[in-house]
């Protein structure tokens, strides 16, 4: 535990100072943290043995909610847009969750994928509303009432994102230790016994799905602000697949895992795009294979000392 706390503190400290010395990294790190938030949502569901291939839905829904509000100048303030975008995706998760938590395993994963692809199609086809494949521009909002220049805005957004990620990770860590979190794990382990404890597995999974949607929505709201532009690509299945990839790459043994995975994903993508622009997907694929075979508990498992072959069974479960 002490090792993990020290590592967590070191990671936060490194993230906090890095943009000060390398301003070029601010947006990349913010994007990584946003993807880490969505992957954290995926991790919550993976604790129940369920995997969603459609969380791009909540990521993009929140991003578009922010884009529409910013364009309408309803809430031209970043600190208003972020919670509103998150709440919008939470509301959507509350509706979609009613339906998908009735299913398990491949049906759960595919239903999420199907719903996200319906939304992707709507974003593409409803050109007059969504801007179609071109997407929508997100005007830079004020930050705590102050109009920043581009660089200051990016830096402020990064630090707010870092703080929100820490809070989200702390909350999820606490939740996973709580009876609700343990009941969530019990869905993977033995739903029959859970029923015979008088607990509804559906309600437990619904709560986790809601949390998962909110986390993805938080990431989506911030990415809309920092990139200044939203496109249907945010809802595309490849994006949803990346969140799963990041969660597995980082590991689901601890809340730092998805963020580690997201940072590594951005590093690989950045370097591979420069040195192997035609084959960078293959580089990612090989990386994932290496993780699955040699460190099934992911990067977090390696850092926490749980990534060896002895943990293969645990990581595979």
């Amino acid at each position: 535990m002490a090792r993990q706390l020290v590592f967590g503190a070191a990671l936060i400290a490194a993230l906090a100072v890095f943009p000060l010395f390398s301003p070029w990294s601010t947006v990349i790190l913010t994007v990584a943290l946003c993807e880490g938030l969505a992957a954290l949502g995926i991790m919550v569901l993976l604790r129940a043995g369920q995997v969603s291939f459609g969380h791009g839905l909540f990521f993009s829904f929140s991003a578009y909610a922010v884009a529409f509000m910013a364009a309408a100048k309803v809430g031209h303030e970043a600190l208003v847009l972020i919670p509103v975008g998150m709440a919008a995706s939470g509301l959507l998760a509350a509706i979609v969750g009613l339906f998908v938590v009735r299913y398990r395993a491949i049906f759960f994963g595919m239903l999420n994928l199907a719903i996200s692809m319906v939304f992707f199609s709507l974003l593409e086809k409803l050109f007059s509303i969504t801007g179609g494949a071109d997407g929508k521009r997100v005007p830079r909002p004020t930050f705590a009432g102050v109009e920043f220049g581009r660089e200051q805005f990016e830096l402020a957004t990064f630090y707010v994102t870092l703080v929100l990620c820490i809070l989200a990770a702390l909350f999820v860590a606490r939740y996973l230790l709580s009876p609700g979190g343990k009941a969530l794990e019990a869905i993977k382990s033995n739903e029959t016994r859970l029923e015979y404890l008088g607990v509804s597995p559906r309600k437990v999974l619904y709560g986790a799905y809601l949390l998962s949607g909110l986390l993805a929505g938080l990431g989506g709201a911030i990415i809309a602000l920092v990139s200044g532009h939203v496109t249907p690509e945010l809802a595309y299945w490849v994006r949803s697949g990346e969140f799963v990839f990041i969660a597995i790459l980082g590991g689901i043994g601890g809340v730092a895992g998805p963020f580690l995975g997201a940072l590594m994903f951005q590093i690989i993508r950045g370097y591979a795009a420069v040195y192997a622009p035609e084959t960078w997907h293959a580089v990612l694929g090989v990386m994932l294979l290496v993780i699955i075979f040699f460190a099934p508990a992911g990067l977090y498992g390696i850092v926490a000392g749980k990534g060896g072959k002895a943990q293969r069974e645990e990581g595979g479960r």
Binding site: F171, L177, S178, P179, G181, K182, A183, L197, V199
Partner: peptide, 20 residues
Amino acid sequence: LLALSAREGSWSPFTPMLRH
């Protein structure tokens, strides 16, 4: 403890189950 939590209806996300 999960059985105890179910019996007592204690589902606070802020309280670790071991500290019931």
